[in-house]
């Protein structure tokens, strides 16, 4: 009797909770529909919080891992000016990583936890960075195509419903569009150069084109997260819409460079005003996602070894800070 009574009591509580949750969720959705920003102290559904932590931390990890393929060419940049531009760019990526980690921290997950998740393989980062940078032209192709695709994805995020993320993205987008122009300018210099340089540029486009299209994620009917993220206004356009926009913008840029887009099915459709493009090899996409891209292991190993080799430095900094605090306390006493 007694236990049954408790059970009944409990289920009544649960119903009340469920009702309260439904009301809060409705109020939350109403704020989102009214284009209000959600701030860290506001109530939010757990799933909203989880989705954002996943997305923002993935984005931060992508910035950090993305430093590796480009950093690969810092020591070999062909002029001092190009070396400066590349170093400054890679530094910007580190900066983006830092403020994205900060934005994610406002949701109650620490940067240390997020980094652990990256290092032990639980968290993902953009698959594009699992491709190698084989020639100097790859530095240009990354700026032009990868940053170009990133901007398409990220500009709508400046209006994302979560305030700290939206605000971080305003600055990220400004810098990314600068990087995109620098990358294109690098490609232009190669395409106006000698035959060997043009060959380098074409080879880079051949290798980076399809992975860039894959950056927008699976096709809309395959994408697991799209519908809910759209309702929450974390996402504003579907993967396929953004991919189409990228193709429409980028193909004329390739033509201006005098490069050939490696897609025999690519054609301009007068009626719709869009470029129609060939089928994406999703098997390759999922293979890279699974860890079998050309550089997945190398990228994670590089981050792990930086983390491991830096452990004694971080320990020393903490030990020194403790000593200093003790000294200050002793002096005050």
């Amino acid at each position: 009797m007694y236990t049954q009574g408790l059970d009944q009591q409990g289920s009544q509580d649960n119903t009340e909770h469920a009702n309260a949750d439904r009301e809060r969720e409705a109020a939350f959705q109403a704020r989102i529909d009214g284009e209000e920003k959600i701030e860290p102290r506001d109530w939010m559904p757990e799933a909203y919080r989880k989705t954002l932590v996943r997305q923002i931390s993935q984005h931060a990890h992508s910035e950090i891992v993305g430093m590796l393929p480009e950093g690969n060419w810092i020591s070999r940049a062909p002029t001092l000016k190009r070396k400066l531009i590349l170093m400054a760019k890679v530094q910007d990526e580190a900066g983006h990583g830092l403020y994205l980690y900060s934005a994610a921290e406002t949701l109650g997950t620490s940067r240390a936890d997020m980094v652990d998740q990256l290092l032990d393989g639980r968290a993902k980062y953009s698959s594009i960075f699992n491709y190698p940078t084989l020639t100097w032209a790859d530095v240009g192709a990354i700026g032009w195509l990868v940053d170009g695709a990133a901007i398409m994805n990220q500009i709508p995020l400046c209006r994302c419903s979560y305030g700290p993320y939206a605000r971080a993205m305003v600055r990220v987008c400004r810098e990314e569009s600068f990087h995109q122009r620098q990358g294109y300018e690098l490609m232009l210099a190669l395409c106006r150069g000698n035959d060997e340089q043009k060959r380098m540029a074409q080879d880079a486009l051949n290798r980076w084109w399809w992975p860039s299209l894959m950056m927008f994620g699976p096709s809309d009917n395959e994408s697991r997260h799209t519908a809910q993220s759209m309702a929450w206004k974390i996402k504003r356009f579907s993967n396929d819409e953004l991919r189409q926009k990228f193709v429409d913008t980028t193909v004329p840029q390739a033509e201006y460079l005098g490069l050939e887009v490696p897609d025999p099915d690519l054609a301009f459709d007068e009626e719709s005003g869009h470029y129609r493009f060939g089928a994406i090899d999703w098997e390759e996409f999922f293979a890279v996602l699974k860890g079998n891209g050309p550089c997945n292991r190398e990228r994670i190993e590089a981050r792990r070894s930086a983390h491991e080799e830096g452990r004694w430095v971080r320990d020393a900094a903490r030990a020194y800070a403790r000593k200093q605090a003790k000294r200050a306390a002793a002096q005050a006493a």
Partner: peptide, 22 residues
């Protein structure tokens, strides 16, 4: 110093060393 890119003991330090390189 540019060689420290991707290898620093913390992101902040990596940025500092590359900053000096710049």
């Amino acid at each position: 110093l540019g060689e420290w890119c991707g290898k620093g003991p913390a992101l902040e330090e990596e940025m500092a060393l590359v900053n000096f390189a710049l």
